[in-house]
Design a protein around this nucleic acid. Structure first.
Length: 369
DNA sequence: TCTGGGGTCCTAGGACCC
DNA sequence: TCTGGGGTCCTAGGACCC
């Protein structure tokens, strides 16, 4: 996971490994199909990520194991996607059950952790770093005091958990003990930020090029915001050096501004980008990555009002037209004049080997003869 | 010349997740 | 030579208030 392709070229060649660039339009559509199916089978569920969903089985008096196997078979039959199902008393334990369900030949994709004896065994066979909420740094910290398994982690004193991994870590430890510390759905009610950023294929040291990139990111970010039907009250621009070049000085520069009135209008945001680029630009910097963050998001009707310029617009026919054109003719069919040139941008990362959009693009739908 | 106590808010940085 | 992107949460510390 996360290993650069160039480091494993030999392996790829030797075993004829197929290489695919990520295609989120495809993954998103397949995800939607699976999630819709699952949600229709249960009274209460919460989508956690593109490939995970939590289900509440509390009010379902059934044979959970058999039910899960039937569901798994149904998902495979109707979407073609194989899934794993883990069942337990807390989310953290259910995630562990899920991992083992996929790994164990005997479990065959479905595993229930209910009896304490089996929970203990499962925790003993799970590395501390594989527990949900324990990342690389915490795993290192834990290892330094001799904690390497999930079972050992479960049994550390509350105070130690709190001290080493803050309140989130304490929650994790309690969940390992079977004490529920999270609701079925504890995702925030509303998105708080939208970010569009990219690494460049090679470092940029040209101001116009940086500006072009940021303006294009701004367009994407505003389109996202409009899809969410939100506006931003604050804007941040940032640039970063190449973190892999230890021979060069590292930098990370950013600037922030308040948007008055709050907005999701590409023209407004682009104007701000143009006016503020000087605050992060500096001659001689080798910029590897840049991005735009839209913060303090809220619904247009909740946006703070400015005493002089009035409230934030809720209707924006021009932007609506722009969005419709994108749906019909593809991304960046129409752009602001500031971004007149579709640069065929030489700063873009390549995405060779991308899977076709089998389910979301007319031209890519497979033909069966 | 002496110089408190109790708050909130904001931001940067670091951890985590997928 | 090549090294991802987009999120949330927590904490410490500083600025500010009365």
């Amino acid at each position: 996971m996360g290993q650069p392709l160039f480091e494993i070229r030999d392996l790829v060649r030797r075993h004829n490994v197929i290489v695919k660039s990520s295609n989120y339009a495809l993954y998103g559509d397949i995800s939607r199909r699976v999630m819709t199916l699952v949600a229709s089978e249960v009274p209460d569920s919460a989508i956690y990520s593109i490939d995970e969903i939590f289900i509440d089985l509390d009010n379902m008096s059934i044979n959970h194991d058999q039910w899960a196997r039937d569901l798994k078979a149904k998902i495979l039959r109707e979407t073609g996607i194989p899934v794993g199902i883990g069942i337990s008393t807390t989310k953290t334990l259910a995630k562990i059950a899920n991992r083992l369900a996929k790994k164990s030949f005997k479990a065959d994709g479905v595993l229930m952790l209910k009896d304490q004896k089996w929970i203990d065994l499962a925790l003993e066979r799970t590395e501390a770093g594989d527990v949900w909420g324990v990342g690389r740094k915490f795993a290192q910290k834990l290892a330094s005091i001799g904690i390497t398994t999930a079972l050992q982690l479960r049994d550390i004193p509350d105070q130690a958990a709190r001290q080493m991994m803050t309140v989130g870590g304490l929650k994790t430890v309690r969940e390992l003990r079977g004490i529920c510390c999270s609701d079925l759905d504890d995702s925030p009610a509303q998105r708080e930020t939208v970010c569009v950023s990219r690494s460049f294929s090679k470092e940029i040291d040209d101001r116009e090029m940086l500006k072009e990139a940021l303006l294009s990111f701004a367009g994407r970010a505003c389109a996202k915001l409009r899809r969410l039907e939100l506006v931003a009250c604050r804007l941040q621009l940032f640039i970063l050096s190449n973190r892999f070049r230890s021979d060069r000085p590292q930098f990370s520069k950013g600037c922030e501004l308040t948007l008055t009135p709050a907005s999701n209008d590409t023209r407004q945001i682009c104007k701000h980008v143009g006016e503020n680029i000087g605050r992060i630009w500096q001659n001689g910097l080798q910029i590897k990555k840049a991005g735009i963050l839209l913060l303090d998001l809220c619904r247009p009707e909740d946006a703070p009002r400015d005493l002089f310029s009035g409230s934030c617009r809720t209707e924006n026919p021009l932007m609506q037209a722009l969005d419709q054109l994108e749906v019909r003719f593809g991304k960046e069919t129409v752009m602001t004049g500031r971004l007149a040139r579709r640069s065929g941008p030489d700063w873009f990362m390549t995405t060779d080997n991308r899977s076709p959009n089998y389910t979301t693009r007319w031209q890519d739908i497979p033909t069966v003869r």
